[in-house]
Every structure is written in C-alpha cells, then in structure tokens.
C-alpha cells in the first residue's frame, strides 16, 4: 500500500493508503477528501480533481497528456509547476509519501 497525504486549502490534512495501480483521485474519493469532486469518475473529461503536487513528487510523475494539459489550463488557478489532474496519477512505490494540495475550489 502507498501512503498519500492531501492538504486542504484550510490547512487540514488527510493521510490515507492506496493500492499500487490505482489513481490518486481514487485514493481521495475513498477517503472522502473534501474538494476532490471527480465528476467524470476518472475519465479525464472534466477538471474537478485538480491538485497541486509537491515538487519532489511532481518530477516523478508520468508527464501529462494533451487532454489533461488542455483541461488543466481551465482549472482553478493552475500552476504549470505543480498542477495535475489526480485521476491521471497512477500510484506506484516511487510515490510513497506523496503530498498533494487541494485547490480552494474546482473550476
């Protein structure tokens, strides 16, 4: 299991464990992390699971695809150096301890 932590915009923290091969969005949903709406359920069709990934981990991620990059452009206050759609982050051992910040709002 992989431990990940979500930081709310209000500073609250939720730490949870997820199976390798599942996505960061699924971990957030399972733990009922506020602010991760994931309306499309992980189909990369909305942008309501946007998170900011801490720099140490951001560079370890598979690069975002075109669809994700386009959707991120329209997310709430995107940051090219840390913004990702959490449904596109597949968890693996290298991401143990990942910290993601939840934006103030989605869209």
């Amino acid at each position: 299991m992989i431990t990940v932590t979500f930081e709310g915009a209000d500073g609250s923290r939720i730490t949870t464990k997820a199976r390798p091969g599942t996505t960061l969005m699924e971990a957030a949903r399972a733990a009922s992390v506020p602010g991760i709406l994931a309306e499309c359920g992980g189909a990369c069709s909305c942008s309501t699971c946007h998170v900011y990934v801490a720099p140490d981990f951001f560079d370890l991620l598979e690069p975002a695809g075109e669809m994700e990059l386009d959707l991120l452009d329209f997310a709430w206050e995107p940051d090219p150096a840390s913004s990702r759609l959490s449904c596109q982050i597949v968890l693996n051992e290298a991401l143990e301890g990942l910290v993601a910040r939840v934006p103030e709002r989605q869209g």
Binding site: L71, D73, F74
Partner: peptide
C-alpha cells in the same frame, strides 16, 4: 470532439 479547450470555454 477531442477539443477540451472548446468544451471548457463553451461551458464557462
């Protein structure tokens, strides 16, 4: 169709 920018712009 494969045009998320059009979709997001229209939605807004």
């Amino acid at each position: 169709m494969n045009d998320p920018r059009a979709y997001m712009t229209a939605k807004r």
